[in-house]
């Protein structure tokens, strides 16, 4: 009786999460497609003014695709799971290919106009975000494909196509993730070198940019450690996981109140008289 009640509860919870996921999908698509258009049409920035913050409206679709993998794993209906899986792969593609375009543009900007000014220098960490999250997401999707696809009628042209496709998707997921991890680490090194060339740079809202990109790179490393059963990646996960917590809980001992990001946000002058009242 209890189990029955619980199982009813469970299904209800899963479908609530699924509905919320669809809301998230549409929200991410809205920012991912509308914001680049607004940048082209309204902002029309000079190359010099472009920062990696241009990636911010694009990354949500990659986050939504990784979340889709988590939800597809528990959906009771195979049809719904496959629908979620395919949607997640589409979202992953939109996010990653847009990221490729923006990274090329950003690299062009860095090459022509040198490194960003002190105020926005933390944004050099942002390219790690889509690479780390994408690497985590593609492994998650491969794992779910390996569980969901076998036994279905997908990839019917090849004999036993669904099972073989599932294996391929899982393997390709890990393979792609290894390459994206490498590229992410390359951008991270570039970012650390950039930061090292600056003596001091002011604390501002952009500092959260330390936490999220390094954090998702750590989750990508964690998945690689599990999928490759690798001690190296496991230790790297442990080391890289400590960074975000460190940055989050304040790091500048000289100015303890200003260095605490949450405190800064609450005490900051971002309310109507804030940065937007420039007009």
């Amino acid at each position: 009786m209890m189990v029955l009640a619980c199982s009813h509860w469970g299904e209800w919870l899963i479908y609530t999460a699924w509905v919320l996921w669809w809301v998230d999908v549409w929200l991410s698509l809205a920012t991912c497609i509308s914001m680049p258009f607004i940048v082209m049409h309204r902002h029309r920035p000079n190359l010099e003014n472009i920062t990696a913050a241009l990636l911010l409206p694009i990354v949500p679709s990659i986050v939504a695709s990784a979340s889709g993998g988590i939800i597809a794993e528990v959906l009771p209906s195979t049809d719904h799971a496959i629908m979620t899986l395919i949607t997640s792969y589409i979202l992953w593609g939109i996010g990653e290919f847009f990221t490729g375009c923006v990274l090329a543009l950003y690299f062009h900007r860095l090459t022509v106009h040198s490194i960003p000014p002190k105020e926005v220098v933390v944004s050099v960490f942002l390219p790690i975000g889509p690479l780390g999250q994408g690497g985590f997401g593609i492994q998650e999707l491969g794992k779910v494909a390996a569980k969901v696809l076998p036994g279905t009628t997908t990839f019917g042209v090849i004999e036993n196509g669904a099972a073989r496709a599932a294996e391929t998707l899982y393997t390709c997921g890990v393979f792609l993730a290894v390459m994206m991890w490498g590229f992410g680490v390359a951008w991270m090194t570039l970012a650390f070198i950039t930061i090292a060339t600056m003596r001091k740079f002011p604390f501002n809202m952009g500092w959260w940019g330390f936490t999220f990109p390094l954090g998702v790179l750590a989750t990508c490393t964690g998945s690689l450690a599990k999928n490759l059963d690798s001690g190296f990646f496991k230790i790297t996960t442990a080391v890289s996981s400590t960074h975000p917590s460190y940055w989050l809980w304040g790091n500048d001992a000289n100015s303890s109140s200003r260095s605490f990001p949450c405190w800064w946000c609450l005490s900051g002058s971002w309310w109507p008289s804030g940065p937007l009242s420039w007009q």
């Binding site: 911010l56 949500p60 986050v63």
Partner: peptide
Amino acid sequence: AHPAQSLFLGCFPMAFASEFF
């Protein structure tokens, strides 16, 4: 219309996803 602030709109779906998952 703000060239920097508007880009942060993307943070809402990102936070929302990591939050409820």
